[in-house]
């Protein structure tokens, strides 16, 4: 039976939604990483000396050699823009009237994905430096949102 042959008033679908709520444990490395952002305004990585690789965000293990990592490094708060995009759709797929600019900013051999301060976003180019702007200490809760956004270093 094709769609056109169907009785238009016939019931044809049931609608439902899934209730899903999760808790995500930061883990040993994640807890120290986010605590450093919250309490010290610092971005930390962990170093694998076998692979000569610095993981940012910090990881408890090296994904290359699977060694346990315990050498912690402060990688600063200014990094290089590896790539970026001007995003025209919101989280739920609805259109954004003003696009938001998202970038991957390199720290160590990894980096941070975050928003770029909106007034500057049209000047962005790959290779520019960008600095993390933190929320005031009283507003921080120990998450990636403790970084408000990154601002371009245009000088």
């Amino acid at each position: 039976m094709t769609y056109l042959e169907r009785e238009p008033a016939a019931p044809k679908a049931w609608q439902d939604e899934m209730q899903v709520t999760n808790r995500y444990t930061y883990g040993v490395a994640g807890e120290r990483f986010f605590r450093a952002i919250k309490d010290e305004s610092k971005i930390l990585g962990t170093r694998c000396n076998n692979c000569e690789h610095t993981y940012v965000p910090a990881s408890l293990f090296c994904e290359r050699c699977l060694d346990h990592l315990d050498e912690w490094i402060d990688v600063g708060t200014t990094g290089e823009i590896v790539t970026f995009t001007h995003l025209y759709v919101d989280y739920d797929g609805s259109p954004l009237l003003e696009p938001e600019t998202i970038a991957f900013i390199k720290f160590g051999d990894g980096g941070i994905i975050h928003r770029i301060e909106s007034n500057e976003s049209q000047q962005i180019e790959i290779g520019m430096s960008a600095r993390a702007v933190f929320k005031s200490k009283t507003e921080r809760a120990g998450s990636i949102l403790d970084i408000l956004h990154f601002e371009l270093m245009t000088s």
């Binding site: 899903v20 999760n22 995500y24 930061y26 994640g30 986010f34 965000p57 590896v82 790539t83 970026f84 995009t85 001007h86 995003l87 759709v89 919101d90 989280y91 739920d92 797929g93 938001e100 998202i102 970038a103 991957f104 994905i113 975050h114 928003r115 790959i126 998450s143 990636i144 949102l145």
Partner: peptide
């Protein structure tokens, strides 16, 4: 979009509430 959003890293990326197409945009740009 909710399904692809739920495929993002829950603590590093998802709290920023970015539509997952940003990954395609950033990859294409680079």
């Amino acid at each position: 979009d909710g399904v692809t959003a739920y495929a993002q890293d829950p603590v590093l990326n998802r709290p920023l509430r970015m539509n997952t197409h940003f990954v395609g945009g950033m990859e294409m740009n680079r």
